[in-house]
Write a protein that binds this DNA or RNA. Structure first.
Lengths: 214, 214
DNA sequence: TCACTCATGTAATTGGTTACATGATTCC
DNA sequence: GGAATCATGTAACCAATTACATGAGTGA
Protein backbone atom coordinates (compact mmCIF):
# COMPACT_ATOMS: atom_id res chain seq x y z
CA UNK A 1 0.00 0.00 0.00
CA UNK A 2 1.32 3.44 -0.92
CA UNK A 3 0.28 5.26 2.24
CA UNK A 4 2.51 2.99 4.30
CA UNK A 5 5.47 3.72 2.10
CA UNK A 6 4.82 7.43 2.09
CA UNK A 7 4.80 7.39 5.89
CA UNK A 8 8.09 5.51 5.86
CA UNK A 9 9.46 8.08 3.45
CA UNK A 10 8.37 10.95 5.67
CA UNK A 11 9.88 9.30 8.72
CA UNK A 12 13.36 9.91 7.37
CA UNK A 13 13.37 11.94 10.56
CA UNK A 14 11.20 11.09 13.59
CA UNK A 15 7.70 12.51 13.78
CA UNK A 16 4.30 12.01 15.37
CA UNK A 17 1.06 11.25 13.55
CA UNK A 18 0.06 14.84 14.01
CA UNK A 19 3.32 16.06 12.47
CA UNK A 20 2.83 13.77 9.51
CA UNK A 21 -0.65 15.10 8.91
CA UNK A 22 0.87 18.55 8.60
CA UNK A 23 3.33 17.17 6.04
CA UNK A 24 0.44 15.87 3.97
CA UNK A 25 -1.17 19.27 4.06
CA UNK A 26 2.01 21.09 3.21
CA UNK A 27 4.73 19.49 1.14
CA UNK A 28 2.87 16.62 -0.39
CA UNK A 29 -0.69 17.66 -0.98
CA UNK A 30 -0.35 17.96 -4.75
CA UNK A 31 -0.11 14.19 -5.09
CA UNK A 32 -1.38 12.60 -1.86
CA UNK A 33 -3.52 13.22 1.15
CA UNK A 34 -4.49 11.33 4.30
CA UNK A 35 -6.71 12.02 7.28
CA UNK A 36 -5.50 11.58 10.84
CA UNK A 37 -8.02 8.79 11.24
CA UNK A 38 -6.15 6.92 8.55
CA UNK A 39 -2.65 7.88 9.68
CA UNK A 40 -2.87 6.70 13.27
CA UNK A 41 -3.94 3.11 12.55
CA UNK A 42 -1.45 2.92 9.68
CA UNK A 43 1.42 3.88 12.00
CA UNK A 44 0.23 1.36 14.57
CA UNK A 45 0.23 -1.41 11.99
CA UNK A 46 3.67 -0.45 10.71
CA UNK A 47 4.97 -0.65 14.25
CA UNK A 48 3.40 -4.08 14.70
CA UNK A 49 5.11 -5.19 11.52
CA UNK A 50 8.43 -3.99 12.93
CA UNK A 51 8.98 -1.28 10.33
CA UNK A 52 8.63 1.51 12.89
CA UNK A 53 9.23 1.99 16.58
CA UNK A 54 7.73 4.68 18.81
CA UNK A 55 8.28 6.61 22.01
CA UNK A 56 5.83 8.60 24.05
CA UNK A 57 7.28 12.00 24.86
CA UNK A 58 5.75 15.00 26.67
CA UNK A 59 4.68 17.86 24.43
CA UNK A 60 5.69 21.45 24.93
CA UNK A 61 2.10 22.37 24.40
CA UNK A 62 -0.89 20.03 24.64
CA UNK A 63 -1.04 16.33 25.51
CA UNK A 64 1.68 13.70 25.13
CA UNK A 65 3.05 12.87 21.71
CA UNK A 66 3.85 9.46 20.28
CA UNK A 67 6.92 9.94 18.12
CA UNK A 68 7.78 7.34 15.49
CA UNK A 69 11.04 6.51 13.76
CA UNK A 70 11.99 3.93 11.13
CA UNK A 71 13.75 0.70 11.96
CA UNK A 72 16.29 -0.95 9.67
CA UNK A 73 13.51 -3.16 8.36
CA UNK A 74 11.57 0.01 7.63
CA UNK A 75 14.37 1.57 5.59
CA UNK A 76 14.75 -1.69 3.73
CA UNK A 77 11.05 -1.76 2.91
CA UNK A 78 11.17 1.87 1.77
CA UNK A 79 14.09 1.22 -0.51
CA UNK A 80 12.34 -1.74 -2.10
CA UNK A 81 9.36 0.44 -2.83
CA UNK A 82 11.48 3.23 -4.28
CA UNK A 83 13.07 0.71 -6.65
CA UNK A 84 9.75 -0.80 -7.72
CA UNK A 85 7.94 -0.03 -10.96
CA UNK A 86 5.92 3.15 -11.39
CA UNK A 87 2.20 2.39 -11.49
CA UNK A 88 0.03 4.77 -13.46
CA UNK A 89 -3.35 4.91 -11.76
CA UNK A 90 -6.54 4.83 -13.80
CA UNK A 91 -8.18 7.98 -12.61
CA UNK A 92 -11.84 8.57 -12.00
CA UNK A 93 -12.72 12.11 -12.93
CA UNK A 94 -16.34 12.78 -12.19
CA UNK A 95 -16.40 16.19 -13.86
CA UNK A 96 -15.36 14.58 -17.14
CA UNK A 97 -18.18 12.10 -16.72
CA UNK A 98 -20.59 14.99 -16.27
CA UNK A 99 -19.26 16.77 -19.32
CA UNK A 100 -19.37 13.56 -21.36
CA UNK A 101 -23.13 13.30 -20.88
CA UNK A 102 -23.88 17.01 -20.81
CA UNK A 103 -24.95 17.06 -24.45
CA UNK A 104 -28.24 15.62 -23.25
CA UNK A 105 -29.04 18.89 -21.54
CA UNK A 106 -29.22 20.68 -24.90
CA UNK A 107 -28.06 23.83 -23.20
CA UNK A 108 -24.64 25.10 -24.21
CA UNK A 109 -24.84 27.88 -21.63
CA UNK A 110 -24.92 25.26 -18.90
CA UNK A 111 -21.81 23.67 -20.38
CA UNK A 112 -20.07 27.02 -20.55
CA UNK A 113 -20.85 27.79 -16.95
CA UNK A 114 -19.61 24.37 -15.96
CA UNK A 115 -16.34 24.84 -17.83
CA UNK A 116 -15.84 28.29 -16.38
CA UNK A 117 -16.15 27.01 -12.85
CA UNK A 118 -13.81 24.20 -13.67
CA UNK A 119 -11.27 26.60 -15.08
CA UNK A 120 -11.58 28.72 -11.98
CA UNK A 121 -10.86 25.78 -9.73
CA UNK A 122 -7.90 24.66 -11.84
CA UNK A 123 -6.47 28.16 -12.05
CA UNK A 124 -6.67 28.56 -8.29
CA UNK A 125 -4.77 25.34 -7.71
CA UNK A 126 -2.23 26.27 -10.32
CA UNK A 127 -1.67 29.62 -8.62
CA UNK A 128 -0.97 27.82 -5.35
CA UNK A 129 1.69 25.61 -6.90
CA UNK A 130 3.25 28.48 -8.80
CA UNK A 131 3.43 30.47 -5.58
CA UNK A 132 5.24 27.59 -3.91
CA UNK A 133 7.65 27.41 -6.82
CA UNK A 134 8.30 31.15 -6.64
CA UNK A 135 8.95 30.81 -2.92
CA UNK A 136 11.52 28.09 -3.53
CA UNK A 137 13.15 30.21 -6.17
CA UNK A 138 13.33 33.13 -3.80
CA UNK A 139 14.87 30.96 -1.10
CA UNK A 140 17.52 29.72 -3.54
CA UNK A 141 18.23 33.23 -4.83
CA UNK A 142 17.09 32.56 -8.38
CA UNK A 143 16.21 35.82 -10.16
CA UNK A 144 12.51 36.10 -11.06
CA UNK A 145 13.41 36.48 -14.76
CA UNK A 146 14.49 32.85 -14.83
CA UNK A 147 11.14 31.81 -13.43
CA UNK A 148 8.84 32.02 -16.43
CA UNK A 149 11.15 30.12 -18.75
CA UNK A 150 11.02 26.66 -17.28
CA UNK A 151 11.92 24.79 -14.16
CA UNK A 152 15.46 24.21 -15.29
CA UNK A 153 16.86 27.09 -13.31
CA UNK A 154 16.34 25.56 -9.92
CA UNK A 155 17.30 22.01 -10.73
CA UNK A 156 21.00 22.88 -10.83
CA UNK A 157 21.17 24.60 -7.48
CA UNK A 158 19.77 22.05 -5.10
CA UNK A 159 20.82 18.71 -3.69
CA UNK A 160 19.34 15.41 -4.85
CA UNK A 161 16.61 15.20 -2.24
CA UNK A 162 15.29 18.69 -2.94
CA UNK A 163 15.67 18.11 -6.66
CA UNK A 164 13.42 15.08 -6.58
CA UNK A 165 10.81 16.87 -4.50
CA UNK A 166 10.91 19.77 -6.88
CA UNK A 167 10.27 17.61 -9.93
CA UNK A 168 6.97 16.45 -8.42
CA UNK A 169 5.96 20.07 -7.99
CA UNK A 170 6.82 20.65 -11.63
CA UNK A 171 4.54 17.81 -12.60
CA UNK A 172 1.66 19.45 -10.76
CA UNK A 173 2.33 22.71 -12.54
CA UNK A 174 2.56 21.09 -15.99
CA UNK A 175 -0.57 19.16 -15.31
CA UNK A 176 -2.66 22.08 -14.15
CA UNK A 177 -1.48 24.34 -16.94
CA UNK A 178 -2.57 21.80 -19.50
CA UNK A 179 -5.94 21.53 -17.81
CA UNK A 180 -6.46 25.28 -17.88
CA UNK A 181 -5.49 25.26 -21.56
CA UNK A 182 -8.00 22.53 -22.21
CA UNK A 183 -10.69 24.54 -20.45
CA UNK A 184 -9.88 27.49 -22.68
CA UNK A 185 -9.93 25.38 -25.84
CA UNK A 186 -13.27 23.94 -24.82
CA UNK A 187 -14.74 27.32 -23.92
CA UNK A 188 -13.65 28.70 -27.29
CA UNK A 189 -15.36 25.83 -29.06
CA UNK A 190 -18.50 26.29 -26.99
CA UNK A 191 -18.63 30.00 -27.76
CA UNK A 192 -18.12 29.29 -31.46
CA UNK A 193 -20.97 26.80 -31.46
CA UNK A 194 -23.25 29.22 -29.72
CA UNK A 195 -22.39 32.00 -32.14
CA UNK A 196 -23.04 29.79 -35.15
CA UNK A 197 -26.29 28.66 -33.66
CA UNK A 198 -27.47 32.22 -33.25
CA UNK A 199 -26.82 32.84 -36.95
CA UNK A 200 -28.14 29.66 -38.51
CA UNK A 201 -30.79 28.66 -36.05
CA UNK A 202 -31.01 25.63 -33.86
CA UNK A 203 -29.94 23.02 -36.41
CA UNK A 204 -27.12 20.71 -35.49
CA UNK A 205 -24.84 21.91 -38.34
CA UNK A 206 -23.87 20.18 -41.64
CA UNK A 207 -24.02 16.57 -42.78
CA UNK A 208 -24.85 14.50 -39.67
CA UNK A 209 -22.98 11.40 -40.69
CA UNK A 210 -23.24 7.99 -39.08
CA UNK A 211 -22.92 7.73 -35.29
CA UNK A 212 -19.32 7.73 -34.22
CA UNK A 213 -18.20 5.67 -31.25
CA UNK A 214 -15.04 6.27 -29.26
CA UNK B 1 -22.09 8.57 -6.11
CA UNK B 2 -20.67 9.08 -9.57
CA UNK B 3 -20.84 5.50 -10.75
CA UNK B 4 -24.61 5.54 -10.36
CA UNK B 5 -24.90 8.66 -12.44
CA UNK B 6 -22.56 7.38 -15.10
CA UNK B 7 -24.71 4.26 -15.41
CA UNK B 8 -27.78 6.47 -15.74
CA UNK B 9 -26.00 8.46 -18.41
CA UNK B 10 -25.06 5.34 -20.33
CA UNK B 11 -28.62 4.05 -20.14
CA UNK B 12 -29.77 6.77 -22.47
CA UNK B 13 -30.52 3.66 -24.45
CA UNK B 14 -31.31 0.27 -22.83
CA UNK B 15 -28.42 -2.05 -22.00
CA UNK B 16 -27.38 -4.96 -19.82
CA UNK B 17 -24.67 -4.92 -17.18
CA UNK B 18 -22.43 -6.74 -19.59
CA UNK B 19 -23.04 -4.14 -22.29
CA UNK B 20 -22.21 -1.37 -19.85
CA UNK B 21 -18.94 -3.00 -18.91
CA UNK B 22 -17.98 -2.88 -22.56
CA UNK B 23 -18.82 0.83 -22.60
CA UNK B 24 -16.46 1.40 -19.70
CA UNK B 25 -13.74 -0.39 -21.57
CA UNK B 26 -14.35 1.45 -24.78
CA UNK B 27 -15.76 4.95 -24.83
CA UNK B 28 -15.17 6.02 -21.28
CA UNK B 29 -11.99 4.39 -20.06
CA UNK B 30 -9.93 7.58 -20.14
CA UNK B 31 -11.85 8.96 -17.17
CA UNK B 32 -13.67 6.09 -15.46
CA UNK B 33 -13.69 2.36 -15.03
CA UNK B 34 -15.81 -0.20 -13.23
CA UNK B 35 -15.69 -3.96 -12.79
CA UNK B 36 -18.71 -6.15 -13.46
CA UNK B 37 -18.76 -7.03 -9.78
CA UNK B 38 -19.41 -3.38 -9.07
CA UNK B 39 -21.80 -2.77 -11.94
CA UNK B 40 -24.31 -5.52 -11.18
CA UNK B 41 -25.03 -4.53 -7.57
CA UNK B 42 -25.13 -0.85 -8.57
CA UNK B 43 -27.79 -1.54 -11.20
CA UNK B 44 -29.78 -3.59 -8.72
CA UNK B 45 -29.77 -0.76 -6.21
CA UNK B 46 -30.75 1.79 -8.82
CA UNK B 47 -33.70 -0.38 -9.73
CA UNK B 48 -34.71 -0.67 -6.09
CA UNK B 49 -34.59 3.12 -5.86
CA UNK B 50 -36.91 3.34 -8.87
CA UNK B 51 -34.39 5.05 -11.15
CA UNK B 52 -34.17 2.04 -13.48
CA UNK B 53 -36.41 -0.79 -14.57
CA UNK B 54 -35.32 -4.08 -16.10
CA UNK B 55 -36.50 -6.93 -18.30
CA UNK B 56 -35.03 -10.38 -18.72
CA UNK B 57 -34.68 -11.20 -22.40
CA UNK B 58 -33.18 -14.24 -24.15
CA UNK B 59 -29.76 -13.73 -25.64
CA UNK B 60 -28.85 -14.53 -29.23
CA UNK B 61 -25.76 -16.19 -27.85
CA UNK B 62 -25.17 -17.31 -24.28
CA UNK B 63 -27.47 -17.08 -21.24
CA UNK B 64 -30.37 -14.71 -20.60
CA UNK B 65 -29.73 -10.99 -20.39
CA UNK B 66 -31.18 -8.51 -17.92
CA UNK B 67 -31.70 -5.32 -19.86
CA UNK B 68 -32.09 -2.04 -17.98
CA UNK B 69 -33.64 1.25 -19.00
CA UNK B 70 -34.09 4.56 -17.20
CA UNK B 71 -37.37 5.62 -15.63
CA UNK B 72 -38.56 9.23 -15.50
CA UNK B 73 -37.16 9.45 -11.99
CA UNK B 74 -33.86 8.22 -13.41
CA UNK B 75 -33.71 10.91 -16.08
CA UNK B 76 -34.58 13.49 -13.46
CA UNK B 77 -31.76 12.30 -11.22
CA UNK B 78 -29.32 12.33 -14.14
CA UNK B 79 -30.26 15.87 -15.05
CA UNK B 80 -29.75 17.04 -11.49
CA UNK B 81 -26.30 15.55 -11.50
CA UNK B 82 -25.41 17.11 -14.85
CA UNK B 83 -26.39 20.51 -13.47
CA UNK B 84 -24.42 20.07 -10.27
CA UNK B 85 -21.02 21.60 -9.54
CA UNK B 86 -17.85 20.07 -10.95
CA UNK B 87 -15.79 18.46 -8.20
CA UNK B 88 -12.05 18.34 -8.74
CA UNK B 89 -10.76 15.17 -7.10
CA UNK B 90 -7.59 15.26 -5.02
CA UNK B 91 -5.58 12.63 -6.78
CA UNK B 92 -3.23 10.10 -5.25
CA UNK B 93 -0.34 9.49 -7.58
CA UNK B 94 1.91 6.84 -6.15
CA UNK B 95 4.65 7.28 -8.74
CA UNK B 96 5.02 10.92 -7.70
CA UNK B 97 5.34 9.78 -4.11
CA UNK B 98 8.11 7.42 -5.16
CA UNK B 99 9.90 10.13 -7.08
CA UNK B 100 9.48 12.57 -4.19
CA UNK B 101 11.49 10.32 -1.90
CA UNK B 102 13.83 8.92 -4.51
CA UNK B 103 16.62 11.31 -3.61
CA UNK B 104 17.33 9.01 -0.67
CA UNK B 105 18.54 6.37 -3.06
CA UNK B 106 21.47 8.57 -4.10
CA UNK B 107 21.39 6.94 -7.50
CA UNK B 108 20.40 9.19 -10.38
CA UNK B 109 20.47 6.26 -12.79
CA UNK B 110 17.65 4.66 -10.87
CA UNK B 111 15.67 7.88 -11.18
CA UNK B 112 16.35 8.03 -14.89
CA UNK B 113 15.20 4.50 -15.42
CA UNK B 114 12.10 5.23 -13.42
CA UNK B 115 11.30 8.30 -15.48
CA UNK B 116 11.91 6.48 -18.72
CA UNK B 117 9.46 3.77 -17.82
CA UNK B 118 6.97 6.37 -16.78
CA UNK B 119 7.37 8.20 -20.05
CA UNK B 120 6.89 4.95 -21.91
CA UNK B 121 3.64 4.24 -20.11
CA UNK B 122 2.36 7.77 -20.69
CA UNK B 123 3.34 7.76 -24.34
CA UNK B 124 1.53 4.48 -24.91
CA UNK B 125 -1.65 5.82 -23.39
CA UNK B 126 -1.34 9.00 -25.36
CA UNK B 127 -0.96 7.04 -28.58
CA UNK B 128 -4.18 5.17 -27.82
CA UNK B 129 -6.14 8.40 -27.35
CA UNK B 130 -4.60 9.99 -30.42
CA UNK B 131 -5.53 6.93 -32.45
CA UNK B 132 -9.13 7.24 -31.28
CA UNK B 133 -9.12 10.89 -32.23
CA UNK B 134 -7.73 10.12 -35.67
CA UNK B 135 -10.44 7.49 -36.11
CA UNK B 136 -13.14 10.00 -35.30
CA UNK B 137 -11.60 12.46 -37.69
CA UNK B 138 -11.56 9.85 -40.43
CA UNK B 139 -15.20 8.99 -39.76
CA UNK B 140 -16.15 12.67 -40.04
CA UNK B 141 -14.11 13.19 -43.19
CA UNK B 142 -11.68 15.68 -41.67
CA UNK B 143 -8.43 15.82 -43.67
CA UNK B 144 -5.40 14.57 -41.72
CA UNK B 145 -3.65 17.95 -42.18
CA UNK B 146 -6.16 19.53 -39.82
CA UNK B 147 -5.34 16.93 -37.21
CA UNK B 148 -2.02 18.11 -35.80
CA UNK B 149 -3.17 21.69 -35.32
CA UNK B 150 -5.69 21.33 -32.55
CA UNK B 151 -9.02 19.76 -31.82
CA UNK B 152 -10.96 22.67 -33.27
CA UNK B 153 -11.53 20.99 -36.58
CA UNK B 154 -13.91 18.36 -35.35
CA UNK B 155 -15.89 20.44 -32.92
CA UNK B 156 -17.76 22.19 -35.71
CA UNK B 157 -18.90 19.09 -37.53
CA UNK B 158 -20.63 17.08 -34.87
CA UNK B 159 -23.83 17.35 -32.85
CA UNK B 160 -23.89 18.40 -29.22
CA UNK B 161 -23.72 14.92 -27.76
CA UNK B 162 -20.69 13.91 -29.78
CA UNK B 163 -19.11 17.29 -29.18
CA UNK B 164 -19.27 16.87 -25.42
CA UNK B 165 -17.86 13.38 -25.61
CA UNK B 166 -15.08 14.63 -27.82
CA UNK B 167 -14.06 17.35 -25.39
CA UNK B 168 -13.37 14.73 -22.73
CA UNK B 169 -11.11 12.91 -25.14
CA UNK B 170 -9.29 16.19 -25.76
CA UNK B 171 -8.74 16.55 -22.04
CA UNK B 172 -7.09 13.14 -21.94
CA UNK B 173 -4.83 14.10 -24.82
CA UNK B 174 -3.87 17.45 -23.30
CA UNK B 175 -3.22 15.80 -20.00
CA UNK B 176 -1.02 13.02 -21.32
CA UNK B 177 0.95 15.33 -23.59
CA UNK B 178 1.79 17.51 -20.63
CA UNK B 179 2.88 14.47 -18.66
CA UNK B 180 5.17 13.29 -21.43
CA UNK B 181 6.62 16.80 -21.62
CA UNK B 182 7.22 16.76 -17.90
CA UNK B 183 8.99 13.43 -18.21
CA UNK B 184 11.23 14.90 -20.86
CA UNK B 185 11.98 17.99 -18.80
CA UNK B 186 12.82 15.82 -15.82
CA UNK B 187 14.99 13.47 -17.84
CA UNK B 188 16.90 16.42 -19.27
CA UNK B 189 17.54 17.72 -15.79
CA UNK B 190 18.63 14.29 -14.57
CA UNK B 191 21.07 13.91 -17.46
CA UNK B 192 22.45 17.38 -16.83
CA UNK B 193 23.01 16.57 -13.16
CA UNK B 194 24.76 13.33 -14.01
CA UNK B 195 26.98 15.04 -16.57
CA UNK B 196 27.99 17.75 -14.13
CA UNK B 197 28.68 15.17 -11.48
CA UNK B 198 31.01 13.27 -13.76
CA UNK B 199 32.99 16.48 -14.29
CA UNK B 200 33.13 17.93 -10.79
CA UNK B 201 32.88 14.81 -8.69
CA UNK B 202 30.21 13.75 -6.27
CA UNK B 203 29.64 17.08 -4.54
CA UNK B 204 26.11 18.40 -4.34
CA UNK B 205 26.90 21.60 -6.32
CA UNK B 206 27.12 25.23 -5.13
CA UNK B 207 25.97 27.00 -1.99
CA UNK B 208 23.65 24.58 -0.13
CA UNK B 209 21.45 27.19 1.47
CA UNK B 210 18.94 26.66 4.26
CA UNK B 211 16.48 23.77 3.96
CA UNK B 212 13.55 24.73 1.79
CA UNK B 213 10.08 23.45 2.54
CA UNK B 214 7.25 23.23 0.01
C1' DT C 1 -13.84 -32.00 -26.14
C1' DC C 2 -11.80 -27.82 -24.96
C1' DA C 3 -11.20 -23.06 -24.92
C1' DC C 4 -13.48 -18.80 -25.41
C1' DT C 5 -16.99 -15.42 -25.12
C1' DC C 6 -21.46 -14.32 -23.23
C1' DA C 7 -23.80 -13.55 -19.08
C1' DT C 8 -25.01 -12.82 -14.04
C1' DG C 9 -24.08 -12.66 -9.78
C1' DT C 10 -21.99 -13.08 -4.35
C1' DA C 11 -18.33 -12.67 -0.70
C1' DA C 12 -14.23 -11.02 1.34
C1' DT C 13 -11.05 -7.60 1.71
C1' DT C 14 -8.81 -3.06 1.13
C1' DG C 15 -8.32 1.87 1.20
C1' DG C 16 -10.41 5.91 2.37
C1' DT C 17 -14.01 9.26 4.48
C1' DT C 18 -17.03 10.92 8.03
C1' DA C 19 -18.45 11.02 12.49
C1' DC C 20 -17.53 10.59 17.17
C1' DA C 21 -14.94 10.74 21.78
C1' DT C 22 -11.54 12.72 24.81
C1' DG C 23 -8.61 15.86 26.98
C1' DA C 24 -4.52 19.26 27.75
C1' DT C 25 -2.73 23.98 26.89
C1' DT C 26 -2.75 28.63 25.27
C1' DC C 27 -4.49 33.01 24.05
C1' DC C 28 -8.27 36.41 24.05
C1' DG D 1 -14.87 31.37 30.57
C1' DG D 2 -14.58 30.10 25.72
C1' DA D 3 -12.44 29.35 21.31
C1' DA D 4 -8.41 27.57 18.99
C1' DT D 5 -4.71 24.51 18.57
C1' DC D 6 -2.29 20.37 20.03
C1' DA D 7 -2.80 15.56 20.33
C1' DT D 8 -4.53 10.59 19.94
C1' DG D 9 -7.50 7.54 18.89
C1' DT D 10 -12.15 4.32 17.57
C1' DA D 11 -16.33 3.09 14.86
C1' DA D 12 -19.34 3.13 11.05
C1' DC D 13 -19.69 3.50 6.51
C1' DC D 14 -18.65 3.70 1.42
C1' DA D 15 -16.38 2.70 -3.02
C1' DA D 16 -13.64 -0.32 -5.38
C1' DT D 17 -10.76 -4.59 -6.11
C1' DT D 18 -10.07 -9.46 -6.03
C1' DA D 19 -11.63 -13.88 -5.68
C1' DC D 20 -15.07 -17.12 -6.28
C1' DA D 21 -19.23 -19.58 -8.34
C1' DT D 22 -22.17 -20.89 -12.10
C1' DG D 23 -23.67 -21.97 -16.52
C1' DA D 24 -25.18 -21.48 -21.71
C1' DG D 25 -23.62 -21.22 -26.52
C1' DT D 26 -19.95 -21.15 -30.32
C1' DG D 27 -16.11 -22.45 -33.05
C1' DA D 28 -11.59 -25.04 -33.59
Amino acid sequence: MSLDHILLGMLHKPASGYDLKREFEQSVRHFWFAELSQIYPALKKLEQRGLLRSDVVPSTRGPERRVFETTDAGSEELEQWLLSEPLVPKDRISYLAQLFFMGELEDLSASRQFMERLRGAMATRLAVLEAIEAEWMGAMGVPPEALRVDGGALTELVDDRVFHMYTTLRMGIHSLRSRVEWCNETLDALRARQARRRKFGDLPSPPKKAEVQA
